[in-house]
Design a protein around this nucleic acid. Structure first.
Lengths: 345, 345
DNA sequence: GAATCACTCCAAAGCGCTTTGAATAGCGAA
DNA sequence: TTCGCTATTCAAAGCGCTTTGGAGTGATTC
């Protein structure tokens, strides 16, 4: 049942039926009722493809999940971010178009989605420091929003980010306050912008405490349980092992916990672990007595916020570019405690 | 630059340009070259919306992520499943349309996507036992494929599944062979079809060994680290605690590991843990010496397979309904060992 | 020289919707 | 009576592509 057929049954023109269904004022209320009832009865659904062509909008927003052929690790926060964003899209009548592409094809995919008019807007995730996607997209006249930021880019763009530097400074500072002096830092890959900022926060906290950073205590790895375990094991086997760890995510923190337990240490007593907590739903670190001391910022809420900011931008493409910077919240858990007696300090 | 403009610059009809670009034979090779070069030069991209309307296909496939307002846990396997499926879609020129909706709106969303022609096919995930989505979708004449199965449904439908019953039977059997007699089972929510089957496998293994199942050792919870920890803690604090655990996923297994360590037990020596391993990328249980003994079946590969099966079905909608049943592979890890001396057996 | 055929190309009719511009009817005001 | 205005409806022109059904041109055949 399409618009034409429906209008024929009603002895009305397609114009009137279309207007009746879309709530235009220039249609008699009695007629409108007749139309909506018939549409209901015949289960009429406007064809989305035709609608998109006629309106010039696709009512969908593009997300890209890149993966490299070498390591097929999907970013741990994608699922929750997408869940948050998708929720807002649904409420606003948008769909999400998700493309999974090799990382070297990522920009071409953004470009194709924009140039073919497949999407009305794009979300860019996990920017690297001088991210070429951003400068390129800015020339494409498609609304887009960056989750995170890219340092050293002159082009203005809309973004939403967490204050990563401050978060890691707070987290490291907390361990320093507990008396720890050798603090292992297991960061994400430092080509990522957020990892750079977190590193800066870690270093700033050490500097304030007058502690010289030790390269042996700073690892930069892709965030997985395995990598967390591996890095922590290496550090724990040093001649002067750390008494505490800071991790860039709860996932490597799980690996650290494993390495600590395997050596017979008790978390929060012998060794402290603190991490950045994206509040991933199935790895929740909540309740009255959280497992990990952490700086928390919900990536799901970030997804929601990014979606809303992008939709706003699509609706007012010439408005000012918005920015939003969130502060993460320090959560005290069981995984940290004072530096044990006899520690290096 | 649209087709009309391009054809005017070339002094050709839109027809010829369209055919030249789409590889139809009835166009002179010299002309075709002239066209493709011009298309390249002017960066012509056919408008996707117009293309969809004209062809009657949307070249996109619908996935739905449901969530309930109460517990916002995103299914732990969604990210990897989607990553696998998306990869295959990209290779075949399809996009993925992802909708995140409240679980009570899930079927309406499937229906809307199908009836408005927004998608050419649908993937149904996580079926429950007598899943209404399947019977309803079958009446909608849209190709769809179920990841998993739904017992007690007469309507034929295409599916791809892992042999969950067999997998849990093997896993439980392995623990029984090691001498364990009290084996805690931490399953997913038993309204899910896969959980029913896994339960059946667990019970069958016990039955073969002549062991009466103990309800106190069988928990059914949403799969999260927290829930794994909570359930394991309860069981470990029983008067007759289990000497081993079977978990429905590596995520609750992490929680079990935490509960075991917290009590000063050593995994694989004092207490054994085995689990179903979906081979989630950032929780990989691989390498030479896997952490957990597990039955493994890559959910990412399952995503790839489902995508391919659905695409095949879209291309040949009247072909036979395909089914695919995979066997999970037993992986021996460090988390299991013989039942310690003095154990109940 | 007419008929046939392969090879190229094109005009025009969709696809199913929205939207512009105009037509019609009804009604009170001049 | 006529004009102007409002309320309601419609015809037709898009949106930008594909695809059907020719049409024109040489070359080949008889």
């Amino acid at each position: 049942m399409n618009l034409k057929e429906l209008s024929e049954r009603l002895d009305l023109s397609p114009t009137t039926v279309s207007r009746a269904l879309n709530g235009y004022p220039e249609v008699n209320e009695a007629t409108r009722r007749r139309v909506t009832e018939a549409a209901e009865r015949y289960n009429y659904r406007p064809n989305a493809r035709a609608l998109h062509l006629a309106t010039g909008r696709s009512m969908s927003i593009g997300h890209i999940i890149p993966f490299s052929k070498q390591n097929e690790i999907v970013n741990i926060v994608f699922a929750d971010f997408i869940a948050g964003a998708g929720e807002v899209y649904s409420l606003n009548g948008y769909n999400m178009t998700l493309s999974v592409v090799r990382d070297d094809e990522e920009f071409d995919t953004y470009r194709r989605l924009a140039e073919t008019g497949s999407v009305d807007g794009l979300i860019v995730q996990s920017p690297v420091c001088d991210d070429p996607r951003i400068t390129h997209l800015a020339q494409l006249s498609v609304p887009f929003l960056v989750h995170g930021r890219a340092s050293d880019i002159d082009t203005p763009y809309a973004w939403m980010d967490v204050n990563n530097t401050r978060a890691l400074e707070v987290l490291t500072g907390h361990l320093l306050d507990l008396g720890h002096r050798r603090i292992g830092f297991i960061n994400g890959q430092e080509k990522m912008d957020f990892a750079q900022r977190r590193r800066a926060g870690y270093l700033r906290a050490l500097e304030k405490a007058g502690i010289e950073p030790d390269p042996a205590l700073m690892h930069s790895v892709e965030m997985s349980e395995q990598n967390g375990h591996t890095s922590a094991s290496i550090m724990l086997d040093l001649d002067e092992p750390p008494t505490a760890f800071v991790a860039s995510s709860i996932v490597p923190a799980l690996g650290i916990r494993r390495a600590v337990s395997a050596r017979g240490h008790v978390l929060g007593r012998d060794i402290s672990v603190a991490c950045f907590d994206d509040d991933i739903s199935y790895l929740s670190n909540g309740g009255d007595r959280p497992e990990f001391t952490a700086v928390r910022s919900s990536v799901r809420d970030a997804g929601r916020r990014c979606a809303q900011m992008l939709i706003d931008r699509i609706r007012a493409p010439d408005g000012p570019l918005c920015h939003d910077l969130w502060e993460a919240e320090l959560i005290l858990g069981q995984s940290t405690g004072p530096c044990p007696e006899g520690c290096v300090s």
